[in-house]
Design a protein around this nucleic acid. Structure first.
Lengths: 206, 206
DNA sequence: TTTCGGGCATACACGTTGTATGTTGGCTGA
DNA sequence: TCAGCCAACATACAACGTGTATGCCCGAAA
């Protein structure tokens, strides 16, 4: 079974078509409002193909969420490495800029609906946590740990701090996207987020 | 149609029974995993009664979430007024204690599953926001506005700040409840939350 | 007492999910 | 090269769950 045969390409193509169709529909109208019939129609296959590639509808959703989350993670490390080239900035500024980059990435519509809204309800917190852990949360925690180790922010338990900051960013992105005036919402939440981070620098709590 | 007749009592009783049964089941296994047949069996009525009192299953969920959220709001104002009796504390300490009280209230299992996990996915953000606004978020915003007005915390846009803090508290409660060691998780997140708030006091920026 | 409507039970129609079964086309070994 | 075999689908079916239409009953008002 050569992995690069034409047949293998077809297999990967149908799977990709399913993922793409499901992603577009899930992002547009939500998990429960989209039936499998609609998905396979858009992907120009049949339900048989769907249930051949995925155990059930939730399993398809998990795969979709994985790709969406991986996309975000990719954008993050991309910006991160790009910024590392001009690496005159210290850990503090790296973290500060990273948070804002994070916020920008979370503004993606697909990401919000699939990962932030439907994800927890569809997958349950265990599976959801596992996906978030490897796509983004781990990165944020690394930044924070480094910042704490170098004394750039106050000594706080890194694990809960990372979770809380991630939730902050997520909520900020939702607030912006749903605002009637996204421009000022972006400015205000960005500023507030930055101010929260600034407040974590050492020497504040007497 | 006297509102206090025996018949009216029966009507209210069946409605309450439906709310109670739905709440228990939704909290235990989530919205989609629970069918209406199971709900009415537990409430010892029929599906006819359910669809007489509520437009559809989502409408029943909305009513359940409203009661759960109202419960939390009730506990909050209760603690708040109790603390106001001994009101030597200033606005700052009131806010600080209020946040911790908030956190404690969010630890309720029913609240987490129904309001925080299923709520956004089932109701959509518009209906969800409306419910959260009147049960808790409004209160938090009032505290913050007062704290800002009196110069207890730095001048930040109150509206997004309230949203962000609410998300922070919600995530903290989920983190604690799902932790293998809730005691230390509670201590750590409580401390982190308090530290974030402390960082918002004036005189930290530049 | 009769009637009238709210409150609820029953029955049905519909869509949706998951599974079981059938079919096809390419790889593979003799 | 060809027989057979299996992955990759397509099709058909069974089970379930929701929402609605219909019917019944009882309390209240006239």
């Amino acid at each position: 079974m050569p992995a690069d045969s034409r047949r293998a390409e077809h297999v990967a193509d149908t799977r990709d078509a399913l993922l793409e169709a499901a992603r577009a529909l899930f992002a547009e109208r939500g998990y429960t409002a989209v039936g499998t019939a609609e998905i396979v129609t858009r992907a120009r296959v049949t339900r048989g193909a769907l249930y051949h590639h995925f155990r059930d509808k939730a399993d398809l959703f998990r795969a979709v969420m994985r790709t969406v989350a991986a996309e975000l993670a990719g954008r993050l490390v991309e910006e991160q490495t790009a910024r590392a080239e001009e690496s005159t900035a210290g850990v503090w500024d790296q973290l500060r800029n990273g948070i804002q980059t994070y916020l920008g990435a979370c503004l993606d519509g697909d990401f919000q609906r699939i990962v932030l809204v439907d994800g927890p309800a569809v997958l349950g917190h265990a599976a959801w946590d596992a996906l978030v852990e490897e796509h983004g949360l781990g990165l944020l925690r690394d930044w924070l740990r480094q910042a704490v180790d170098e004394g750039q922010i106050d000594a706080l338990p890194v694990d809960p701090l990372a979770r809380l900051l991630a939730a902050l960013i997520a909520e900020a992105s939702l607030y912006i996207a749903r605002s009637t005036d996204p421009a000022t919402a972006r400015e205000e939440t960005g500023r507030t987020l930055d101010r929260v981070l600034l407040g974590l620098r050492p020497g504040v709590g007497e």
